[in-house]
Design a binder for these strands. Structure first.
Length: 953
RNA sequence: AGGACCAUAGCUCAGUUGGUUAGAGCGCCACGUUGACAUCGUGGAGGUCGGCGGUUCAAAUCCGCCUGGUCCUACCA
């Protein structure tokens, strides 16, 4: 083995080997356990969030596989409609200077598939680098033929059950992408805006109670004035009661529009009058519905002003009686240009009463970054109410459990207030909606054109045209858990692996994805998609900032694994910025934070870092310090293994149960470490069951470093290196060294798959685990099971005593400034017979680890020479110090120590002096306090004696 | 406006059902290269657990209020 741990040399090799050996596929034996990967965008690349999520899933899968479960980790990718289409559009614009319209639908879709072929492998290669033990043979894509069949089936059935309908509705329209988007894809951003107060003249010579000939309405969106179809006042508002039913003349347009009473108008805001534009505002849409006002659309799909308005009733029927005339000067103007022009015109007409500056929020499309426009369009919707009810119940009754549980509230809150889901998108890349129209505009929904004709008895000469729209990406990913397993076919995989065991996901897509999966799966499978949802937090940078390209604080998991030079990192972060002026600041921040670039840490260290930071549901601030620390941990494990192999390879390790070479004798240390191993196994298993990966990793780390390496390996040296140790003792220690290490590796494997496999291959044969020509892998070894019978409380107490004595001597060395390597003589006194037995049983260990030349009992404590002292229980450890003591320094130190004991004693005496404490606290607690008091007193007495001795010098 | 979560050492975080001399890693200080590891070893310094009040024999832990931070939902005509 190399002297230092070199992750890059072992990681790629092992992953290939596992894959070739087909170790990721389900075993076909044992209780099923399955995880469906949240499908990443097919053209995307792996970011820190993926890496974190993949680590958790892989740890669960490897752990369950070792437990003998029949595990399936289903892998695949999402076609990601909008994101992918935008990407390819940008690409062809850059490379060929063309738009998708230049190419046409079919040619454009071919381009997208080409791009998928080219770049689709990127993220799968990165998943391999993370060590993800997914079953590649079952890889799926949401645009596969089979998956498309599932999507169609669901659409048609929902339509037949009246759960899908088509209608002209107000939707969130993205004027850049020319498509509807769902509420969830809208991002609300705070802005400073203006608030214009306009005068709307009253028609027919009517005046207000105050004698004015106009009403004042205010708006942040003057351009929508063109589409106003009424003015609302509150029904309770006495100021305007007489005006309800009268009309105003819409300025600049000249349309007569009614004054209606509606609770939407707030008496306390502004004038109490509000303009109503049902075709361009969601609230006004509702007012329009209640008051049967016409919907007057004045925008094109680019959000430019129409030449002639389009008027509809709430059912979407055209209203030919409404005069569609709009002032010609606005036609074709962009909404923001129109706004300026309109305000200027209102001002010129003397109708602008006031302009205020206000803070408001504006809706932005999360993909395009453009301001979203509520626009009246024909769209397909899922009626969610009926689907939501069982989905809520499934969580209420525990069929689905969220971990951590508080996300259930978030889920309920959203599900209780669900709007119908707009599923059509005016895109080309996606699942085309299986609906056909005849020339009269009648719609036929079916699995194919042929089926549509058949179902509705349409003659062959009737021309049918398929709907141009595609489905929301989340519609197809909502079928992920069963669509990947072959539904609508009846497959054995569906029977075996559905419902899946646990969904591992971020809280940000509970609404987008989790909720919709639950609804659709319950509807079509009549069972839940997964039994548990483990919700993890967001991976943020070291300062707690969200990682984003525009902030230039993104870390690439692959760079943490392989390392990256500073200049390359700077280039990566400052290249292709939307706002190039930020490049300088980003470059500086990067140089400051990563002066030497980023070293290679390896996948195992990265995974371990994620796991150690994976506390329940909280966001994690990614800590480079911990990454370094866990890389060091890998190195520690590596070197501990080198030590073990050095001592065990080619030797008799007592591998066979009978012992190959004869008797086996286990030392105290051997029994102790085996005992602690059982406890660690139980701890790690329990933590995994509770999804507490931080506790699991911590327990392993502590055991390996602080017990196995720091103590056990040191305690093994006297046996391994001492010629006087018996062959049976050497055999016992070798056997323990090897077996405990072998168990450690299995315990570590789900968290650190590569290093554990690499070392295990060398260690397993020595531990009696035959590997048959290297065909075995740690992946398929049994998960370590704690054996209660091997827990040895007496050995633990004895080792604690040995450690205490050694630490006492080390303390004295440090306090007295004695060189760590200088051999010392030590006296023990005031001990019990038990102390003497322990010393005799462990003398070589104490001597070796504390670097002592001699250890002697002092029968008469009164005879003690001037010494530095430490207490181990009742027993005193003395290091004679005659000439070496700095009297003043030592007196000062002792005074401080005595002071500390006094404080402790004072605290406990106060407690014990409190009658209600003694009366009400449990007996055990009181006893414990008494015990502590005695210990503190003993320590104090010793310190005082020592002080008096030194003072007398 | 409503709700959720968070506040513990310089930094990143643990701390089950109230009872610990409040922990870990990194960083810091001192000392140390003879045989697994300087990606290391030994020892150490560093915290009135955001503030105030309450419940209790006992509060980092339970309750209330306040402050600061993050996020979600809604509203802003």
């Amino acid at each position: 083995m190399d002297k230092t741990y070199q992750p890059e040399q072992i990681e790629s090799r092992w992953y290939q080997r596992w894959e070739t050996d087909n170790r990721f596929a389900p075993s076909g034996e044992g209780e099923p356990y399955s995880i469906m990967i949240p499908p990443p965008n097919v053209t995307g690349s792996l970011h820190m969030g993926h890496a974190f999520q993949v680590t958790i899933m892989d740890t669960l899968i490897r752990w369950r596989r070792m437990q003998g479960r029949n595990t399936l980790w289903q892998v695949g990718a999402d076609h990601a409609g909008i994101a992918t289409q935008m990407l390819v559009e940008r690409k062809i614009a850059a490379e060929e200077g063309k738009t998708r319209f230049d190419l046409g639908r079919d040619a454009f879709i071919d381009k997208v598939w080409e791009w998928k072929q080219e770049s689709g492998g990127h993220i799968t290669r990165q998943l391999r680098r993370m060590g993800a033990s997914v079953d590649w043979s079952r890889e799926r894509f949401t645009m596969d033929d089979g998956f498309y069949q599932a999507v169609q089936e669901v659409f048609v059935q929902l339509f037949d059950d009246d759960l899908i309908y088509r209608g002209k509705r107000l939707v969130n329209w993205d004027p850049t992408l020319h498509t509807a988007i769902s509420d969830l894809e809208v991002e609300n951003r705070d802005q400073q805006g203006q608030f214009w107060h306009f005068r709307y003249p009253l028609a027919d010579g009517v005046t207000t109670d105050a004698g004015l000939d106009h009403l004042v309405v205010a708006t942040t969106r003057p351009e929508t004035l063109l589409g106003d179809s009424g003015v609302a006042v509150n029904p309770e508002d006495p100021r305007y009661a007489s005006l309800v039913g009268k009309f105003v003349t819409l300025p600049l347009v000249g349309r007569r529009i009614p004054i209606v009473a509606d609770e939407h108008a707030d008496m306390d805001k502004g004038s109490g009058c509000v303009k109503v534009t049902p075709a361009h505002d969601f609230n006004d849409y509702e007012v329009g519905r209640r008051q049967t006002l016409p919907l007057i659309n004045v925008f094109t799909q680019d959000a430019r002003i129409l030449e002639r308005a389009e008027a509809y009733d709430i059912q979407g029927r055209a209203l030919p009686d409404i005069d569609p005339t709009l002032p010609a000067k606005y036609a074709g103007l962009d909404r923001f240009e129109a706004r300026q022009q309109l305000v200027a015109d209102m001002d010129a007409a003397g109708l602008l009463e006031q302009v205020e500056t206000v803070n408001n929020t504006l809706p932005y499309g999360d993909r395009s970054g453009d301001v979203i426009e509520p626009l009246l369009t024909d769209q397909w919707f899922v009626a969610v109410e009926k689907l939501a009810r069982p989905a809520i119940e499934a969580v209420e009754n525990g069929d689905i459990q969220f971990v951590p549980k508080n996300y259930e509230n978030m889920y309920f809150a959203w599900m209780r207030d669900l709007q119908d889901w707009c599923i059509s998108r005016q895109l080309w890349w996606g699942h085309r909606i299986p609906a056909w129209y005849d020339e009269a505009g009648n719609v036929y929904v079916a699995r194919s054109e042929a089926e549509a004709r058949d179902k509705h008895g349409l003659a062959a000469d009737v021309t049918l045209t398929q709907d141009d729209d595609v489905l929301d990406t989340w519609f197809s990913s909502g079928l992920w858990t069963f669509g990947t397993l072959g539904w609508p076919e009846k497959t054995p995989e569906l029977d075996t692996f559905h419902p899946s065991s646990v969904l591992v996901t971020g809280f940000d897509i509970i609404f987008f994805w989790v909720a919709r999966m639950i609804m659709l799966t319950l509807k079509f499978r009549d069972e839940v998609p997964f039994k548990q949802v483990y919700v993890h937090g967001l991976v943020r940078d070291g300062q707690g900032q969200k990682m984003s390209k525009s902030k230039g604080n993104v870390l690439d998991p692959i760079d943490l694994i392989d390392g990256i030079a500073l200049e390359d990192l700077v280039d990566k972060r400052t290249g292709s910025l939307m706002q190039p002026q930020k490049a300088k600041a980003i470059a500086k921040a990067t140089r400051d934070e990563f002066a030497g670039g980023i070293e290679a840490h390896g996948t195992d260290a990265l995974r371990f870092t994620f796991l150690s930071q994976a506390t329940t549901g909280r966001d994690i601030k990614f800590d480079m310090g911990r990454l370094d620390g866990y890389r060091n941990f890998c190195n520690k494990l590596w070197n501990a293994s080198r030590y073990v192999l050095m001592n065990a390879e080619g030797e008799d390790c007592g591998a066979s149960p009978e012992g190959q070479g004869g008797e086996i004798e286990l030392s105290l240390a051997d029994r102790w470490i085996v005992s602690r191993l059982q406890q660690t196994e139980a701890q790690v298993t329990r933590a995994m069951e509770e999804f507490r990966f931080d506790h699991a990793s911590q327990a392993l780390y502590d055991f390996v470093w602080n017990e196995y390496c720091d103590w056990y390996l040191e305690l093994s040296k006297p046996v391994m290196w001492d010629d006087e140790a018996s062959p049976a003792a050497k055999r016992g220690t070798r056997r323990t060294l090897v077996r405990v290490l072998e168990a450690i590796l299995r315990l570590a494997h789900p968290m650190m798959p590569f290093i554990s496999e690499e070392i295990w291959q060398r260690v397993a044969p020595l531990a009696g685990k035959a590997t048959g020509e290297g065909s075995e892998s740690i992946m398929n070894q049994p998960w370590p099971l704690a054996e209660e019978a091997k827990v040895d409380a007496a050995a633990t107490r004895d080792i604690e005593w040995v450690k205490d004595v050694i630490v006492a001597v080390r303390n004295i060395r440090a306090e007295m400034n004695l060189a760590p390597g200088k051999p010392l003589d030590v006296l023990l006194t005031k001990g019990s017979p038990g102390d003497r037995e322990r010393l005799e049983a462990n003398r070589p260990f104490v001597a070796k680890l504390a670097k002592l030349e001699r250890i002697e009992w002092l029968e008469d404590p009164e005879q003690a020479p001037l010494s530095a002292t430490q207490l181990v229980g009742e027993m005193e450890v003395l290091v004679p110090m005659a000439d070496l003591i700095d009297k003043d320094a030592e007196l000062a130190r002792l005074a401080k120590e005595i002071d500390k004991q006094d404080r402790l004693i004072g605290g406990i005496e106060k407690k014990l002096g409190n009658e209600s404490f003694v009366a009400k606290a449990p007996e055990a607690v009181v006893e414990k306090e008494r015990g502590k008091l005695a210990d503190f007193h003993a320590a104090r007495t010793l310190l005082v004696e020592q002080r008096d001795k030194i003072a007398a010098l």
